[in-house]
Amino acid sequence: MTKTNAGHFFEDYQVGMEIVHATPRTVTAGDRALYGSLYPNRFALHSSNLFAQACGLPESPMDDLLSFHVVFGKTVPDISLNAVANLGYAEGRFLRPVYAGETLRSVSQVIGLKENSNGKTGIVWVRTTGLDGQGDPVLEYCRWVMVRKRDTGAAAPETVVPELAAKVEARDLKVPEGLNFSNYDKDLAGSTHMWEDYAPGEVIDHVDGVTLEEAEHMMATRLWQNTAKVHFDATLREDGKRLIYGGHIISLARALSFNGLGNAQMIAGINAGAHANPAHSGMTVFAWSEILAAEETSRPDVGALRVRMVASSERGMAGKLRDDSGRYLPSVLLDLDLWLLVPRST
């Protein structure tokens, strides 16, 4: 009798199935320090207790993506251990900041299934919620994953494709309780550009680049307790290369976006996202953003920007996303549609 976990295969899932993921994880100041050493993150709200307190928060919260990665990592052994690819995201909302000392865990519900025509794989849609130690939600998102079948002869389940919103409505974004940008210090934040300074259609080249290192991406993936084999075991891929965890690319792009979006202090939502092409050690990651919309929130001092954040393996590709046939360019690594909270001039 085997005692090891081979993970779920496509035929193991049922629509409505709820999965309580192991292992709860308490985040600490050490996580913040290691996150900062892996990514060139300079957003003041996540760097300074004093700056955060001046903005109405009790202390500097964990980086929003640090919380996302911890919650996401919990789901990997149950959702994507046998995945071919993580295909997309939708309906993501960051419901409140997470602080050092809090414990996070994850639960997921299967909301859709569709076997692929090759009979070897299928698409699994899940809605995941990250919970704190009291069981209250801190973030939620949907994602869909292509998962291998254990038995290609197994009967296909009934196809259920969920209807997911094309975007999170601005009115449904959660502005953290207490957050107050009315006395915002632009000098300490490192940027003079406020919510009013951005216009839909504007494209921002974030200029800087970071070359991917093998050890760093594996360290990051272990930090989130993400057990996906393709990130560690080079023998599992025909090209003999470890696949860089997509969350590593997301965090790099977000950190690089400081140069041009330095006052976009918090992520409030994920509207959509795709890991367009694989990334490997030795590639250099650049980033650019397009402003899709600027919306008011429930607070007069806090505005929301809807931003397309793109990571590319080539410099100088700002505004270039797809070829003439509509396919992603080979250099595009990430296409992520976000809501960001930015101070307004009052």
Rank of each mutant, 00 (worst) to 15 (best):
Ile249Ser: 11
Ile249Lys: 09
Ile250Ala: 08
Ser251Thr: 06
Ser251Tyr: 04
Leu252His: 03
Ala253Leu: 02
Ala253Gln: 09
Arg254Thr: 11
Arg254Leu: 05
Arg254Asp: 10
Arg254Trp: 10
Arg254Val: 11
Ala255Trp: 13
Ala255Cys: 15
Ala255Glu: 09
Ala255Val: 10
Ala255Phe: 12
Leu256Gln: 05
Ser257Met: 03
Ser257Glu: 00
Ser257Thr: 05
Ser257Phe: 01
Ser257Asp: 02
Ser257Tyr: 01
Phe258Glu: 03
Phe258Asn: 02
Asn259Val: 00
Gly260Tyr: 04
Gly260Met: 05
Leu261His: 08
Leu261Ala: 07
Leu261Pro: 08
Gly262Pro: 01
Gly262Ser: 01
Asn263Arg: 09
Asn263Lys: 06
Ala264Asn: 05
Gln265Cys: 11
Gln265Glu: 14
Gln265Asp: 13
Gln265Arg: 08
Met266Thr: 02
Met266Trp: 03
Met266Pro: 00
Ile267Ala: 04
Ile267Ser: 04
Ala268Arg: 11
Ala268His: 09
Ile270Asn: 10
Ile270Cys: 13
Asn271Gly: 14
Gly273Ser: 07
Gly273Leu: 09
Ala274Asn: 12
Ala274Lys: 12
Ala274Ser: 14
His275Gly: 11
His275Phe: 15
Ala276Val: 09
Ala276Phe: 10
Ala276Asn: 13
Asn277His: 15
Pro278Val: 08
Ala279Tyr: 03
Ala279Glu: 03
His280Arg: 08
His280Asp: 00
His280Pro: 02
His280Ser: 07
Ser281Asn: 09
Gly282His: 07
Gly282Tyr: 10
Met283Ile: 06
Thr284Ser: 09
Thr284Val: 04
Val285Asn: 01
Val285Gln: 02
Val285Asp: 00
Ala287Asp: 01
Ser289Leu: 03
Ser289Arg: 04
Glu290Leu: 10
Ile291Phe: 13
Leu292Ile: 14
Leu292Val: 15
Ala294Ser: 15
Ala294Tyr: 12
Glu295Asp: 14
Glu295Val: 00
Thr297Lys: 01
Ser298Pro: 05
Ser298Leu: 14
Ser298Val: 15
Arg299Glu: 03
Pro300Glu: 02
Pro300Val: 01
Pro300Ala: 02
Pro300Leu: 00
Asp301Asn: 14
Asp301His: 12
Val302Glu: 11
Val302Leu: 13
Ala304Thr: 00
Ala304His: 00
Ala304Pro: 03
Ala304Tyr: 01
Ala304Met: 00
Arg308Asn: 15
Arg308Val: 14
Met309Gln: 15
Met309Cys: 09
Met309Thr: 13
Met309Glu: 10
Val310Cys: 14
Val310Phe: 10
Val310Met: 13
Ala311Leu: 04
Ala311Arg: 04
Ser312Gln: 07
Ser312Gly: 04
Ser312Pro: 02
Ser313Tyr: 02
Glu314Ile: 12
Arg315Ile: 13
Arg315Pro: 12
Arg315Ser: 15
